[in-house]
Every structure is written in C-alpha cells, then in structure tokens.
C-alpha cells in the first residue's frame, strides 16, 4: 500500500494511504500521525488523522514544503512496517435505537430519502440483507467499532466496524441532505457510524440517539471538563442498546452532572484481532466489566 502525497495550497500536506477504507489504511494513518506528532517538526500546527488518509497544516516559512514532504514520506514508509499493538481505551456508548426524536426528524425529511416508504432502519436492514430491523440493530451493537477519524464539527467521530468486510454495514447518505438532525443522533453513511455531537444539517441514515454527550465546551459535564471532546482516533467504542427508561435515567444523571461513562484502558493487538475477530471482540468487550 503506497501512499499518495499532495500539497494543499502552501500550508497543507495531504496524504492518502488508500482510496478505499481498510484496516491497513486506518492503522497506517494512526501510526504515521503519531510519528509526526513525536517528530515535532517546526511550524506544524495541525496533525489530522483521517479514516484512510491524514493531513498536516504547516508554516512554509519555518520548514520548506519539500523538506517536510521528504521527512513525512520517510515516516510514512516506516509506518508500513509497524507492529500494530495499540494502547487505547474501550468506551461504552448507550444507544436508544428507534427513538422518537430521530423518528420525528426522519418523517419531516422523508422525501429526501431513497426509500420514503421505509424507515432508515428498515431500509438499511433490507439493503444489508437482514431479515428484520431487530437483527440489524443487533449487528450494529454486537461488535465494537474503531474511532477511525474525529472532526467535521465539535468532535464528531467516524466509527469503523470491527468485523470482516463482508459483514460490515454499508449505507448511502440521504439523496438530499437534511437541514436538521437531533444532537446525539447515531447516524450511518458509507461504511461509517457517526455520532452527531451537536444539532445540525446532515445526510447520514438515522438509527437512534445516545443520552451521553461527547462534546461540551462550557465545563458542564465532568468527564468533558479536561478535554471538551471525548473520542480520539484509535479509541474503541461499544454501543449498548437501552430503552426509554434507561435513556431518561442517564439523561437525568448527565443533567445533574453525575454520569460516569464506562471507559476502560485496553491493549489492542491487531494480529490477534485478525486471527479471530469475533473471539477477540468478545474479550475486548469483557474489559468493560459487565457481569
């Protein structure tokens, strides 16, 4: 997998590890960007890992673009031989699937959907070959997900499903984007789950909603006081299905600033993961410490 390098104007260097989304491209982006961060090149002000690509912003007056390109190319080639053991975190995110709020929004924008007569979940279950919405939802929260990129606005994560490609869910975006999406919607586009950190426009299929904030700039949520954005590329997320009662209980805890998300440190080993994904995922999920 050889990367493609391109300058973005006079201040950006963009690198595409792969045109398509793969575990290889994602791990490479993660490894190179941490190497670039460690190298601490003069004038590099932003280091942005992407799903299958990465980008830096730099000051060409402090380091010539050609010199930066040479250095980054060397780190990119070295990352090819990385060992892919990752010390990271596993984070549980409760999800109220088929909730009334995304349902209301979905109905308002029905004419913008490729299948206006079905719900987003019915449509996605069908095109991915599931017999029922319940089976589809079970698949969505059954395996963990890698945070493969963070960004868009306010710490929105892109999440990549930790199963073989044949089993990865795929869904197109709405035919025309909505002008509204509830805050904390669990959305789906391409091969990625996203969590809408704030209310806003969007084109992803809507599956449910979480009561758990992932962005809070004003210090009102204790676990977001130190860092206002919760998720980082390389984090592992496990969605946990909840009902209305549990949703309301967690929302009340968040409101009272008593909510403690379930977050545990974990070491991820890519070779072991790829040898038997389901068995490895089951061990990962055990780290969350449920009985």
């Amino acid at each position: 997998m050889s990367s493609r390098f391109s300058f973005g104007g006079d201040e950006h260097l963009f690198v595409e590890c792969d045109e398509e989304m793969t575990f290889d491209a994602f791990f490479k982006s993660l490894a190179v960007t941490s190497a670039i961060r460690a190298a601490d090149f003069p004038g590099v002000s932003e280091i942005c890992p992407g799903n299958a690509s990465y980008q830096m912003r730099f000051d060409p007056d402090r380091m010539h673009p050609d010199e930066l390109l040479r250095e980054v190319r060397a780190l990119d080639e070295a990352a090819e031989r990385g060992d892919h053991v990752l010390d990271t975190r596993i984070i549980e995110i409760p999800v109220y699937y088929e909730d009334p709020w995304t349902h209301e929004t979905m109905m308002r924008f029905r004419e913008r959907h490729q299948d206006p007569d079905a719900t987003d979940l019915e449509y996605c279950a069908r095109i991915n070959g599931y017999d029922s919405v319940a089976d589809f939802i079970a698949a969505h929260h059954g395996s963990p997900w890698f945070v493969s990129m963070v960004g868009f606005v306010c710490g929105v994560p892109w999440l990549y499903q930790m199963v073989e490609r044949e089993r990865q869910i795929e869904a197109p975006k709405y035919v025309r984007p909505r002008t509204d999406t509830p805050r904390h919607t669990i959305g789906y586009g391409g091969c990625f789950t996203a969590i809408y950190a704030v209310r806003g426009a969007g084109g992803y299929q809507m599956f449910g909603i979480t009561p758990m904030p992932i962005f809070e700039p004003a210090g009102k949520v204790s676990y977001l006081r130190e860092e206002m954005v919760l998720l980082r590329p390389g984090d592992i997320v496990k969605f946990a299905p909840i009902d209305r009662t549990a949703y309301d209980a967690i929302a009340a805890e968040v409101e009272a600033d008593r909510y403690e998300p379930r977050i545990r440190p974990v070491r991820f080993d890519r070779a072991e993961f790829e040898a038997d994904m389901d068995a490895y995922n089951a061990r990962l999920i055990e780290v969350l410490g449920h009985d």
Binding site: H12, D18, E19, M21, G50, N51, S53, R165, P172, C191
Partner: peptide, 21 residues
Amino acid sequence: PPFGAGEDPSNITDSPYAYGC
C-alpha cells in the same frame, strides 16, 4: 466506487479538509 466512499463520483472516503480547500 472505493469501499467506504459512497456512490456519487464526487465522493471520497471521508478525509481531513484543508483550510481554503
């Protein structure tokens, strides 16, 4: 269409954006 990019010819696998892009 590359896996993850979407069907539209203007789509790519979601990537970082440059200021001024």
